[in-house]
């Protein structure tokens, strides 16, 4: 499987302000990578670096094996980008904008474009000025998807879309995956990332904290355990891997990292009425990384 995006030590600072530090990242062909982080964590900076819009202060990046700065036009021929907030020419109509962006890109699947216009319930006859935020976002999405580009760089692509259109977007992403397109998806909508992405990268304050499949991330994270007892509540704080113990009446809650066997051995000595354990959701995983500070740039 080919590596589509590769960064090594990719860094960007603005004066003394750190926006991104030593990013090492590989995105494989046909993969959908979810790129998560709070506001200012460096997500948009990463995308702008990968698009060659800004130059790294250290390190480098390749897309399709080409240098993103030196070979920008060649890289751009094979990718499509959707910004978080579409800034388009207010005096052009939607149709004119699609025609222009399609011609500039060089290839458009016209049948698919017309299908997308219908599926996103988009009226291309109006001027961009008159579109709502959601409609401008639809226009950006259609302009990107209609190119059938090998790589889709999406920066908060569903911002402003209603739930129905968000479903349409998810369907399009699944189609893209089936068509072996690679997707770099920066998003705040965790359910969207959870539903679509093969792997998730979590960024904080310009640094990559974790990257892996959801299963891998969950494996690395603590299991939440809730136990209700018929009688006495045992002390489990000394059990290996257990942390965050709290007791409320007959109910004990704790976090568990590592093997569950030692905890089970301790619990089964008591009158256990109910035992619930759950893997953390992506939201819990995400929030567990951002209890304190957020981003820098």
């Amino acid at each position: 499987m080919a590596t589509i995006i590769e960064t090594r030590g990719l860094s960007k600072t603005y004066g003394s302000q750190l926006a991104l530090r030593d990013l090492d990242l590989d995105v494989e062909e046909g993969e959908i990578l979810g790129y998560l982080g709070p506001n200012g964590a460096g997500k948009t900076t990463t995308i702008r670096l990968l698009l060659g819009l800004i130059a790294p202060t250290a390190g480098g990046a390749t897309v399709f094996g080409l240098d993103v700065t030196r070979d920008a036009p060649e890289v751009h021929r094979r990718l499509a980008y959707v910004p978080g907030e579409a800034s388009l020419w207010p005096g052009l109509s939607g149709a004119e904008t699609l025609a222009l962006l399609g011609r500039v890109h060089g290839y458009v699947d016209e049948a698919y474009r017309d299908e997308l216009i219908e599926r996103f319930d988009f009226d291309p006859s109006k001027k961009v000025r008159s579109y709502s935020k959601g409609n401008r976002q639809k226009l950006s999405l259609i302009a990107a998807l209609m190119t059938r580009a090998e790589l889709l760089m999406l920066d908060e692509p569903t911002a402003g879309l209603d739930p129905l259109m968000e479903q349409t977007f998810r369907e399009c992403m699944r189609e893209s995956k089936r068509a072996r397109q690679t997707v770099f998806l920066s998003s705040h909508i965790l359910s969207e990332v959870e539903a679509l992405c093969d792997r998730v990268a979590i960024l904080r304050a310009g640094e990559l904290l974790q990257i892996g499949t959801l299963a891998e991330l969950r494996h690395l994270s603590a299991l939440t355990v809730h136990v209700t007892f018929g009688g006495a509540v045992p002390n489990v704080a000394d059990v290996p891997g257990v942390s965050g113990v709290s007791v409320e009446g007959q109910r004990l809650s704790c976090e568990l990292t590592g093997p569950i066997q030692p905890l089970l051995e301790r619990l089964t000595r008591y009158d256990v009425r109910e035992l619930l354990s759950a893997k953390p959701s992506l939201e819990e995983l995400f929030l567990s990384h951002y209890g304190g500070d957020g981003g820098t740039a």
Binding site: W89, G91, L92, S93, G94, A95, E96, L98, A99, L100, R103, V104, R113, P124, S125, K126, K127, V128, R129
Partner: peptide, 22 residues
């Protein structure tokens, strides 16, 4: 304001023609 073109086409086909239009 004048209406935009409802057609997917027209003479705005690249950065320079766009600049002309703008």
């Amino acid at each position: 304001e004048g209406e935009g073109s409802p057609r997917v086409g027209g003479w705005v086909i690249g950065p320079t023609t766009l600049a002309l239009r703008l």
